[in-house]
Amino acid sequence: MSQGGGNRQDEARVVSLRHEGEDAAASLPSLLAEADRIAATVAQGVHGRRRSGIGETFWQYRHHRPEDGRQAIDWRQSARSDQLFVRQNEWEAANTIWLWRDGSASMRYTSSRNHGAKVDRAAVCQIAVAALLTQGGERVSVLGESAIARTGALGLERASRRLALGPGDAASVEAPNISRFGRVVLASDFLDPIETWTARLSRFAAMEAQGVMLRVIDPAEEDFPYAGRTRFEHPGGGDSLLFGRAEEARSAYRQRWAEHGARLGDLARQYGWTLVTHRTDRPATSAVLALYRALAREV
Score class of each variant (00 low, 15 high):
V216N: 05
Q255R: 15
P283E: 05
R80C: 01
Q135P: 00
A39T: 04
I54F: 14
E298T: 10
A105N: 08
S188M: 11
M207K: 15
H260E: 02
S202P: 00
S172R: 04
D23F: 09
V185E: 09
E22V: 06
V124R: 08
Q71F: 13
R297P: 01
G4P: 00
R18F: 07
A258T: 10
L264H: 02
A72N: 03
R18K: 12
S286R: 12
G48D: 13
I54Q: 15
E208W: 11
D192R: 13
S160W: 05
R231K: 12
G211H: 06
G69P: 09
I178Y: 02
A252L: 10
G166D: 06
A39W: 01
E259M: 09
Y226L: 09
L186K: 06
A105I: 02
R62K: 09
S106G: 07
G182W: 05
S160T: 13
H47L: 12
V124M: 09
R200A: 11
E90D: 12
F58P: 05
A205P: 00
A149P: 06
G45W: 01
R180W: 13
Q83M: 05
R250T: 15
I73S: 03
R215H: 15
G265I: 05
F204P: 00
A93E: 14
A39L: 03
D223E: 15
D266R: 13
T134K: 04
A187V: 12
E259N: 10
R293C: 01
D82G: 08
V142C: 05
Y226P: 01
L186R: 07
N7D: 12
G265Y: 02
D223G: 02
G228I: 08
G152E: 00
R162S: 08
F85S: 02
R282L: 14
G152L: 04
V14W: 12
